[in-house]
Each structure stands twice: as C-alpha cells, then as structure tokens.
Design a protein around this nucleic acid. Structure first.
Lengths: 274, 274
DNA sequence: CTGCACGTACCACTATACGGTACATAAATA
DNA sequence: TATTTATGTACCGTATAGTGGTACGTGCAG
C-alpha cells in the first residue's frame, strides 16, 4: 500500500513579528565575515529602532543564542546555537530521511528503489522500496555487491577522493560478471569521469544480464559521497531512451536527500578572515 | 485601585514573551531523547494553547529552525540550527577569549600569564599578559619550549590520549635542564597522573633555576587538551605555600575559558535512543 | 457509521511588544 | 582639562501584534 505524503494546506499569513526579527538578527550576525555586529549596526540593518533591537538582542543573549565578550559589547552568535545544531544532527537518520523520497521515486519511475552505503570495497543495501508492479527483484536488505559493477558503487566512487578510490579498487577483483562489466581500473576511472559530468551513474547490465540500474550519490557537506540512491529494473523497461529522464529524477532526489542529511544549501564559499 | 507608587527597579524586565516561548520550544525538542515532539505534546509541555504553539512552531519551521518529515507531523530541530552553530564556532578565537581572563589572573596573582598551544613535541606561546610589577620575563610570543619540563606542557599532556603522549615523549630528548627536571618517561607519567588528580600542573624549577610556573589545561568538548594557561614567576614569589591557591585560580580560569571555547557545560550524557 | 485526536483557519480582545523620550556611560573630539 | 558624539540602558503610553478562544477538515479507531 502506497502511503502518500501528508497533505499540507497553503500557509496563510502565519507571522510572528518578533520571532522573524530575532531570526533575522541571528542570520545577519552569522553572515558578517567578522562574525559580530554592534547594536547600531544591527538596528540599521534590521531597520528597527535601536530600543527594539536592543530588547530582542538582550533576550537572545540571556538565552545563549547571542553573546558578548567581556570587554566588547558587540554581539556574536552564542555557543548554545552549536549545542542545538548538534542535537539537530544527532537525530538525522539517513534511512528515515530517505524513505519518503524513495517512495515517491518508486511511484514516479515505477521501479524498485534502493539506498546503499559503501562499506570497504562493497555496496551495502540498507533500504528498499518496491514499486507495486515490480516483480520483486531478488535483493534483500543487508545484501552486498561489488562496487565496480553497480551503479550505486560507481556513483559513490565518483565522489570520493582519488586515493580512497585506488584503495577500494585495489581490494576489488573486477571479474567479468557479464559481457558489459568494466574489468580494468583505467576504463573504470574514465567511467567515473563521465559520471561526474552527468552527475548520475548507469549500470547497463554490468552485474547481471537483463538488469539495468541508475544511481546518484548522497553527498555530505564536504562533497563526499556517504551513500547512494538507485532505481533498478529489467532492461525491457529501463530502456536507454529513459536514461536521461530517470537520471535527472535520481539526481534531484539525491540532492534533496543530501540537504536533508546536513549538506547546507550551496552558498558562496565563506573564507575565514584572519 | 491601589497602585504602587514605587518604581520598581526591575533589573532586567527585558522580556519578549514569544521569543522566550520559541526558544523554550527549541530546547524542549532538543532535550527529547527521540529528538522530536508532536504539537499536542509541545503545547502541553509549554503550557500554551495549541493554537499559540502551532503558530510559533510554524514560523520556526518556515525559517528552518524546525522541520517535519514528509510523512510525519512531528517537529524536530532544523538543520539551519547547525549552520548557525557552526558559524558561531567559526568565530570563536581562543586568544580573544583568553585575553580578558588572563588579564584578570595577572592582576589577581600579580605574575605574568601565558597562553600556549601544543605543537608536535613543543609548547608554543601564543599570548602573554604581564602583571605590572613583573620584571619582564624573557619569553616572547611565538617562542617554544619542550613539553616535559614546563607546567604548560605537562598540563596538556595530562589530558591527551595515551598513545599521543607516547608519541610526543618519544620525540623528546628529556635532558636535565635543572636538577629538578623529570628525565624519564615513567616518572613523567606518574607526574601526569598527579596532575589529573589535582587538575593543574606545577613546574618547580624544572626548566630554569629560580623560576616556577603553574598551569591548567583548556579542554574541548571531548575532554581533550587544546591549549593551556599558566602563571610564572620567580621562586621567591611563587612559594610552595601558594601552590594550592594559585592552582585553584588557574583551574577555575581554565574551565571558564574551556566553556567559552565550545566545551558545553556539564550536562547529563545524552544517549541516542535505538 | 460515530467519536476522538490532531492540524489548521478565523477573529475579537487585550496583553504585549513597539518605539518614542530620557538618562547614563564610554569614546572621541577640542 | 572640558565638550561633544556615539552607544548602551531604562522608563512608559499607546496601538499593534500576539493570544487563545471557537470552528472546521481530515484521518483513524472503534
């Protein structure tokens, strides 16, 4: 039974002025390259009366979301934000985050969707959502497959540092499972290059005849692959002319998941001054 | 109607109801071992009408401080908190934090105060505050000293994992600088034990005759030394009967600095469920 | 079906946050 | 030194912004 996403009505002007202002203040200070801002600066930027700004900042400070040095009274972000942030991360679980997204993809594409991690030189399946129509593919959770001949594996390899890739490949036998299997390191590295180009990976009957698979990597804040999502199905249904479209879907879904996992939205690279 | 004519000198009557409530909500959710809370749960805990709670939570969600899964309506902490928390940490600079505290110690104890890091097998001085009366001790910023014969070095060693300590000591020559210098690894390890006991370190003319020094470590969230603070002066003024008192001062100051650097206040260990 | 629990929308009332003025400091002139 | 200019803090009347009633929709369990 497919579980549809919870219906969420349009949002009416649900607004809480002070709250918005307070959050604006936090964000403003966070954006400053110096990491701090004085009261006049703040009230100017917020376009608020200095009394108002002062009151809000004062409360934020008393609660540890802002702080001031002993000798300066410029405001900076408080470390309580860090505590809260860590607590936020603590409860992010990739499987729970992935499930609803996977369900959507399974529905849209009409094929089985997998979530996998990289463990040593192997792909480890940790979640699966079946499309209704799919004639249950044999894979079980906890199952493993080699990296070099799966879309999941290749997608993750493409977003790992070179030396780790070498290490993993060194530990792989790279035997031909089908006549499409890539069996030498150089060819695989070219393939990884192509994957980085289009941002998703394809397994074109490389591990098993008659089965195709399309995958995209889940990245962390450092652009490093931590997992991957895939759809797989019989070659009769996953035809080459659908590669591009399905690939785009996987890419978008994987990106969505990446941000849910903690990868912050693409921002201008913040260099620390001095 | 009886109205009190007295203007109450309400010290900080600075209050912003919504803000406080919002922060309470964030903290409450953070405290939950499950990391999430539903609307009814929340309003009960906050003792607020569900409408009120809903409105606040809604705004927090729209700003990324809270989030809800696609299939669940329970609120969790949003990852935007993590972004902000990291920005907070980014601008914590140990030297800036330390300076005011060091000044106070220099005044109270009346001796020169140093802040140092551990770099490889050496102590690296990164800040110094002189007491007025002090006849300027020769140390310069950027100077280095061995770990094994300084209070700073020993204080930091005492709060590093054993294997790192071994590594550092292996790289040290441990030659006798004075007749008090500890010159063998075993004796030094016993000394580290004693330091952990009393929580501060003493250099009793171990690097230079006529100079004594008392230091305490700055710890990060993992209880690992990242720096140390010390006072040092002529043995004629830093007499053994002052060790305990000065040590307590250094300990308290170092702890204060540790929390300012990001070591969260001692809390009940939060174990993740499931 | 009926009842219950929960999330959301609407709205009148008044407590609440706003932003004036005013004073108390500190820093920057002269 | 005195005099100004910025900045932080306190007080307070007023209107607006937030509150918490009621009400409706939806999904779930009996």
């Amino acid at each position: 039974m497919m579980k549809r996403a919870v219906k969420r009505p349009k949002k009416p002007p649900y607004k809480v002025q002070v709250l918005d202002r307070a959050i604006n203040i936090l964000e403003f200070i966070g954006k400053q390259s110096s990491g701090e801002a004085g009261l006049p600066e703040l009230s100017a930027a917020m376009k608020l009366h200095k009394t108002t700004t002062h009151r809000i900042a004062h409360v934020l400070e008393s609660r540890g979301l802002l702080r001031r040095g002993l000798d300066s009274n410029r405001y900076r972000l408080g470390l309580h934000l860090y505590d809260l942030g860590c607590q936020a991360l603590d409860h992010v679980n990739i499987r729970d985050e992935a499930r609803p997204l996977m369900t959507r993809v399974a529905f849209d594409v009409g094929e089985t969707v997998h979530l996998a991690l990289l463990d040593r030189a192997e792909v480890l399946y940790i979640e699966r959502i079946e499309a209704q129509r799919s004639l249950t593919m044999g894979s079980k959770l906890g199952a493993r497959n080699p990296v070099y001949c799966t879309a999941l594996g290749k997608a993750m390899l493409a977003y790992l540092p070179e030396n780790e890739v070498d290490q993993i490949l060194a530990a792989s036998r790279m035997e031909a499972r089908t006549r499409n299997t890539i069996t030498n390191v150089l060819a695989l590295k070219r393939e990884l290059e192509r994957i980085r180009d289009r941002e998703f990976a394809i397994d074109d009957e490389e591990i098993e005849d008659g089965v195709r698979c399309i995958a995209a990597p889940i990245l962390n804040a450092n652009n490093r692959a931590v997992a991957a999502l895939s759809v797989s199905g019989p070659s009769s249904r996953i035809t080459p002319d659908r590669f591009q479209l399905i690939g785009k879907t996987m890419l978008k879904t994987a990106q969505e998941l990446s941000t849910r996992i903690g990868r912050q939205a693409p921002v201008v690279p913040v260099k620390r001054k001095r």
